[in-house]
Write a protein that binds this DNA or RNA. Structure first.
Length: 427
RNA sequence: GGAGAAAUGGCAGAGUGGUCGAAUGCGGCGGUCUUGAAAACCGUUGUCCGUUUACGCGGACCGGGGGUUCGAAUCCCUCUUUCUCCGCCA
């Protein structure tokens, strides 16, 4: 969320910049400013009364000690009314704070100045492209047919044991998946990321911390008995490791990489684009997360983009990098680059990574701060994350783009991980 | 799952109703001493909020929430977590 202080200082500019994401913030920001002013007024009143009560209490203690019991009793009588008033004012402040919080969580992050205006995907801006489009024969198969032909992914079996969107990977399919995970993790650790294995189930506080709650409540699987959520991305547990933490400035940037399962209900996305591996309820993903000094977070975003680009290049996939327009930008992000690879048999661009700078939007809520050496003041850090990479669509593109009459060729770089260089019908 | 114990500052650890934001030790930071370092000694050392040009002043926080009291780290309720023992188990 945005900080109240920033809203007070830059209200006009914020309203202006939120227009890029087609968000009219004028009314809500006005309300925030009003409520905050009201809050501070009452707070001052409350604190004055509390100070008075504290003084009386100290007096009473002293009087008892000096055996002036009568005087103490008299003083005691003065406190009753004061206490009542304090109770009432405290309640008022609490109510206003709740209201303020409700307002604040409705305001999305401020888009970076480079974010183009626009309503949807079509308005995203292409930044770079790379890789070669494969020359496939006319009878090239989409990956869901290759999966059957080579018996490497079983969608039917997944339907049977769980439901749609939960495939079973088999044989070389499973091994290829495992190879990709290890490859991505190794590349990340080489680039200085610390590997972590977080829980894939998180509590409510963590959901709020990174902004999945209350916004995307219905998109997460929820375990009612224990009031826990299955994570939609490793971003949630990894970033929340730093909830309520004050880092030393020298520790920045913090770089973590995590492989986890991800679970998404994908409510409301039935129909198109859900065939095969294109959209799953459970999938594997390697995620990179950084915590950075505010002055350096955009440099870091570029660095992460280059890292991800390197992965796609090493896998030999044709790709393009898109800068998301205001309308396509997620609620919490200030700037996002999407990576898409071309899956040549279905002739589709598939999103395989999304790398974002959240600036202080998550950190404000997380209370994630850092402190310069020798300074007393704490500052809000910036958080960033990106997929590096999401597995299923990479797998889809690899299968489709590398199919040959003799089998599916494994990219050179993965062969040390798979132990085989081709997927054939008879393993 | 059953029985019991506990949760205090970066860490260790005192504190069972009043000047306790909290003793003491360690660590950290600054200084004296030293060619340099160590040791020793002296000082300092939490976070958030409000207010103030500033010095400062005020409020809140001893796992979370609620309560009793003029006054709570201390008493009561509740939740969470940790430890010990028993049971079950990858």
């Amino acid at each position: 969320m945005l900080s109240i202080k920033r809203i007070q200082k830059e209200a006009g500019e914020i309203i202006e910049r939120l227009k890029v994401r087609n968000f009219d913030g004028s009314e809500i920001i006005g309300q925030v400013i009003d409520q905050d002013k009201k809050r501070r007024g009452i707070l001052q009143d409350t604190e004055k009364k509390k100070a008075e009560l504290n003084r009386l209490s100290t007096d009473i203690g002293n009087l008892f000690r000096e055996k002036k019991n009568d005087e103490a009793k008299q003083t005691k009588e003065k406190t009753g009314k004061l206490k009542e008033e304090i109770k009432k004012l405290d309640k008022e402040v609490g109510e206003i704070e709740n209201k303020l919080n409700d307002l604040l969580i409705q305001i999305p992050n401020i888009p970076h100045s480079s974010v183009p205006a626009g309503n949807s995907e079509g308005d995203n801006e292409e930044i770079r492209t790379g890789g070669e489009f494969p020359e496939l024969p006319g009878d090239a198969l989409p990956h869901w047919e290759l999966a059957v032909k080579y018996d490497i992914i079983d969608f039917e079996l997944g339907n049977k044991i769980t439901g749609a969107g939960f495939p079973v990977y088999k044989g070389k399919g499973a091994k290829l998946q495992r190879a990709l995970i290890n490859f991505f993790l190794d590349e990340g650790t080489k680039a200085g990321y610390l590997e972590v294995q977080p829980p894939v189930v998180v509590n409510e506080d963590s959901g709020y911390g990174t902004g999945q709650l209350p916004d995307k409540d219905g998109q997460m699987y929820y375990i009612q008995t224990d009031n826990l959520y299955l994570i939609p991305t490793a971003e949630v547990p990894v970033t929340n490791m730093y909830r309520n933490v004050i880092l030393d400035a020298e520790e920045l940037p913090v770089k973590n990489i995590a492989y986890t399962l991800c679970f998404r209900r994908e409510a409301g996305s039935y129909g198109k684009d859900v065939r095969g591996l294109n959209r799953l309820h459970q999938f594997d993903k390697v995620e990179i997360v950084q915590i950075q000094h505010p002055g350096k977070s955009y440099e870091t975003l570029e660095e992460m983009t280059v890292h991800i680009e390197g992965l796609v290049q090493k896998l030999g996939l044709p790709y393009r990098i898109m800068r998301l327009c205001g309308g396509d930008l997620s609620f919490t992000s200030a700037l996002t680059y999407d990576f898409e690879v071309f899956s040549a048999a279905q002739k589709k661009w598939l999103e395989v990574s999304s790398v974002s700078n959240f600036e202080s939007f998550q950190s404000n809520r997380l209370k994630l701060r850092y402190k310069e050496k020798g300074e007393k003041k704490t500052n809000i850090a910036h958080t960033l994350n990106g997929s590096a990479l999401a597995l299923p669509r990479i797998l889809a593109a690899l299968l489709e783009n590398n199919q040959t009459p003799g089998g599916i060729m494994i990219p050179e770089i993965l062969r040390p991980y798979t132990g085989f260089d081709i997927i054939t019908r008879n393993p």
